[in-house]
Each structure stands twice: as C-alpha cells, then as structure tokens.
Amino acid sequence: MSHINVKVAAIEQVTDLIKHFTFVREDGQPFPVFSGGSHVVVSMNINGRIQRNAYSLMGNPEETEAYHISVRRQEKSRGGSVHMHDALKVGDSLQITFPVNLFALEKRARKHLLIAGGIGITPFMSQIADLERNKANYELHYAYRAPEHGAFSKEIKANIGNKLITYVESEGGVLNLRNLLSKQPLGTHVYVCGPGPMVVAMIETARTLGWPENHIHSEQFTAPPSGESFKIKLTKSALEIVVPPEMSMLEAMEAAGVDAPYLCRGGACGRCELEVVCTDGNLLHHDHYLSEAEKAAGKKIMPCVSRAKCDLLEVVL
C-alpha cells in the first residue's frame, strides 16, 4: 500500500479523553482532496511493533494543506490510542495511507439523516462540510454521555446552527430512534456511526420501519480483540506464522513481512478476506462483514479482527 509521510503540526486536547491531531506532509506537497466520510490508516511504531489504526478524516475535504483526525483514548485497547495520546509530540513523523471512503454520502438522497454517538462524530465532520457546500437537506443528531464528552458540539453548532440536534445523556437527553426514523420524508438516507449497540439499534429500527437496505449506512470499526495465540499457515507462500495474543492475524502477517490487503482494519469493508483451507479448531469471527451463514460455514475469515481458537489455521495467501 502506498503511503504519505506526514508530520504532526499541532495537537489539541479537545476533551479529557479526546485529542485532535493536525498532520502536514513531509514533502510540503498538498494532500489529495477526499470525500466526506473518508478515513486514513495511521501507522505507529510502538517500541518496535508497528500498529495501524483507522481514523476518520474530520477536516474540510477541500482543504489540502492539512489533514485532521481525532483520537479517543481507549484504556482497554492494545495501546494505539494511548500511544497517540501520550507519546506523540508536535514535529513527530508518521505514515498514513491515502484516504479511502467506506462511508460515503448517497448523492441521490433527498435528505441525509446523520446519527452520531460519542467519538462517532468524526466522519460526520467532513460530511457536513460537503453537505453545506452542496446546500443539501440534512440533520445531524449527536448523542453523548455528558457535556464534557461532547467534543466539537460547539464548533459544529457555530457552523450548522439548528441542523445540529444534541442529546446529552447526563442531562436526561434521549435519542428516540423509532420516533426519529418514523417521520423522515421519502428518499431519506440514514447514516450512523457510534458505539456498537447504537449502530445495531439504528439498523434494526430502520428495517422494522420498512427502510430499504440501500438507504441504511453505518460505519463501525472494531478494534481487533486479543485472544489466545495460534499458528497460521499460508498456502501459497508456505509460511508459518504465530499470532501472539495481543496481535491480530493481519498484524502478525505484516510483522512477518507479508503484504496482506486491507482497507478499514476494523472488520467492516471485506477487503482483507481470506479463504480458509482448514483448521483443527474454531474460527472466532469478530467482523461486521460476513453474513451469519458465511460465518457458520467457516470458509472465510477477516484477519483484521477475527482469530481462531486452534493450534493451526491454514489460509490461502
């Protein structure tokens, strides 16, 4: 995958848990323009181990001098966000991928209904820039736990006024999905990004109300869960690689020098899909991409988030 070398130009503490990073290019060239909802994958070197995390670009897609991401500190994760928060300094160098959009706005929509939970606000930051420029009909519904968690709500309010509707849980604010989704004009598309249960609830509610699948959009990147160590065998390259407990299959393959495909690294896009030849144990699927039937069939695995409870798993690569 081709990369862009960037430098950290600014770091801003937005809330207790969220930091906003501004990147500029090392070579001084302009960044490519992107479309609202795009993400980049940031590679970081954590004590010699390379970790790659996907973050939504939250700046204006037409601004090419800088890229912006926001990172929520996840204490329970494998250190990527903690590294970004504690180790990264202004002037540090990093590598990012070119932007990829897995959460694009549907141009033909008559109305866009954006629903964000917590840090799930970030992909919408670039989308609202696009929507404002195109004078599109939209609303942004933004739910978060307490006022101090409402990163960017002031800034967004200043930009889009009453198209922003906030729900602050600690102040008794409740986002009633059924109410909201049952009064949308024909031709509306809904987009959700936030914690897993919220995404699932939105999709289920929309389906129950008869929204067609192609009007329902979600983005949910799962951090790869850790688990027990197991060994994988790649049939084409005849390599055998041990996946340690705290690494994903994808990371273990990359650490062994294998150039495996990926886009989201969060079990959403399907790009990393590998064909399973055999295993002496069970596959542990953690992705949102494969259907239940495909998961049960055990012929495919998404190595960016899924693992196996076995001694040996053989895949085609």
Binding site: L181, S182, L186, T188, L209, G210, W211, H215
Partner: peptide, 10 residues
C-alpha cells in the same frame, strides 16, 4: 401522495 410520504412507505 408522494410529497407527504414518509420513509418506510412500501
């Protein structure tokens, strides 16, 4: 009928 119609109209 359509201008007032809502999402979920089959």
């Amino acid at each position: 009928h359509l201008p007032e119609a809502l999402m979920g109209l089959r």
